[in-house]
C-alpha cells in the first residue's frame, strides 16, 4: 500500500512550528486519500527526543534516520535519507515545509524519485481522492492551480499557511537504515551565523515593518519595541534596506521575503506593487501612514492616517498597559 510521508525539521533540539503545520495537513490529506501517514525525522542523537512530539498529530508512525554525521545539515545526505524512507514506505505523496531546507530537499527528492514537484503551496485540497495544489505565482500577484502528473508527488507547504491540529494519538517509532556514500556529504554545513536568535520575518506570526520614512537604523527601535510586545519580528521595505536601516534578510517583497503572517503592521510604507507582492497574503494588515492616498491603504484591513512616530510608541504603550 502506498503512503504519505511528511519530513519534519528541527533546530536546537526542537521541532519547528512549520513542521507541525505540515504534519497536521499531512495526516488529514492521508486520511482523505486512504493512505497511511508517516513522519520522518533525520539527524544525530537529538532525534530520539523528538519522536513523541512528532507522533501527536494522528500519524501511523514516526520514522527516524539517524547517524552521527547527520547532526550537521548536508543537503545530499538528507535527500538520500528521505528518498530511502520514501521507498521503504512506497510513499506516493511527500510533504515538506517550504523553508530554506525543505525547498531544496523537496527538489532533490523529486528528481531522485522521478516525481512531480510543487513548491511553496498555500492550499492543498484532497477531497474526492485527488490532490489539488494551489501556489502563488508572480510573487503573489496571481494564484495558480498546479496538476502534478507523476505517480509520486512532492510538495512543500508555505509556513503559516496551514493550521496546527493536534490529534493525541500513539504512533510506532521505526528506524530506517540508510547507507551513505562520500558524495552524500559533498556539501555540508560547517557553521551557523545566527542573528542573535532573532525571529525570522518568514516564520513570525506577527510582523511589524518599516519603510524609508523611519529615517535611520536607530529609529527602528520603536518598531522593535512594538514587535517585542507582540512577540513578532521586524521587517522592512526595500527602500529601508537600500538606505542601510535594516539588513536584506528583513526585506519583505518581490526581491525580499514573501510572507503570510497572521498580522502585518506596515509603518510608513507606501505600498509599492513590489512590496505588496511580499505581504498581501497576510491575514490581517494594518497600515500607519501620514498620506491617506498611500496605496497601502487599499489592501489594509485597518488604517491609521497619522505620523508613525506618534502612533507606534502609543500603540506599544497601549498593548503593554492591557497585558497587565
Amino acid at each position: 500500500m502506498s503512503s504519505l510521508l511528511i519530513v519534519a525539521e528541527h533546530r536546537n533540539g526542537k521541532l519547528k512550528k512549520s513542521s507541525f503545520e505540515a504534519i497536521s495537513k499531512g495526516a488529514s490529506v492521508a486520511k482523505d486519500l486512504g493512505l497511511s501517514a508517516h513522519v520522518l525525522l533525520i539527524g544525530g542523537t537529538e532525534v530520539a527526543g523528538l519522536t513523541a512530539e512528532a507522533a501527536n498529530y494522528g500519524v501511523t508512525s514516526v520514522l527516524t534516520v539517524t547517524d552521527p554525521k547527520l547532526s550537521a545539515y548536508a543537503n545530499r545526505a538528507f535527500a538520500t535519507a528521505i528518498t530511502e524512507a520514501a521507498k521503504a514506505k512506497s510513499a506516493s505523496v511527500i510533504l515538506l515545509s517550504a523553508t530554506s531546507m525543505g525547498r531544496e530537499l523537496g527538489a532533490f527528492v523529486s528528481v531522485k524519485l522521478d516525481a512531480s514537484f510543487a513548491s511553496d503551496c498555500t492550499d492543498l485540497q484532497s477531497a474526492g481522492g485527488t490532490l489539488k495544489v494551489t501556489r502563488p505565482v508572480y510573487t503573489g500577484k496571481a494564484l495558480s492551480t498546479v496538476e502534478l502528473k507523476q505517480a509520486v508527488k512532492v510538495i512543500t507547504l508555505r509556513p503559516n499557511a496551514f493550521p496546527v491540529l493536534s490529534v493525541p494519538a500513539t504512533a510506532s517509532v521505526e528506524s530506517v537504515s540508510v547507507s551513505f556514500t562520500e558524495k552524500d556529504f559533498g556539501s555540508k554545513v560547517v557553521d551557523m551565523i545566527t542573528a542573535s536568535g532573532k525571529l525570522d520575518v518568514a516564520e513570525a506570526e506577527i510582523v511589524v515593518s518599516g519603510g524609508r520614512s523611519l529615517g535611520s537604523a536607530e529609529n527602528f527601535k520603536i518598531l522593535e519595541d512594538l514587535a517585542e510586545v507582540l512577540g513578532g519580528a521586524v521587517g522592512a521595505s526595500r527602500a529601508a534596506v537600500d538606505s542601510g536601516y535594516r539588513s536584506h534578510e528583513d526585506q519583505v517583497g518581490q526581491t525580499g521575503k514573501v510572507i503570510s503572517p497572521k498580522l502585518y503592521i506596515a509603518c510608513g510604507i507606501s505600498g509599492a506593487i513590489q512590496h505588496l507582492a511580499g505581504m498581501s497574503s497576510s491575514k490581517v494588515i494594518v497600515a500607519i501612514n501620514k498620506d491617506k492616498e498611500a496605496p497601502i491603504f487599499q489592501i489594509a484591513d485597518y488604517g491609521i492616517v497619522a505620523d508613525l512616530f506618534e502612533i507606534v510608541p502609543a500603540l506599544t504603550a497601549e498593548l503593554k498597559k492591557r497585558s497587565h
Binding site: 545539515y73 523553508t99 530554506s100 531546507m101 559533498g186 556539501s187 555540508k188 554545513v189 560547517v190 557553521d191 551557523m192 551565523i193 545566527t194 542573528a195 536568535g197 532573532k198 525571529l199 525570522d200 518568514a202 516564520e203 534578510e249
Partner: peptide, 12 residues
C-alpha cells in the same frame, strides 16, 4: 547561504 533567522556556512 541565507536561512530563516541567520546564515549557514557551507563547505563544498
Amino acid at each position: 547561504r541565507e536561512i530563516e533567522g541567520g546564515k549557514e556556512v557551507v563547505e563544498t
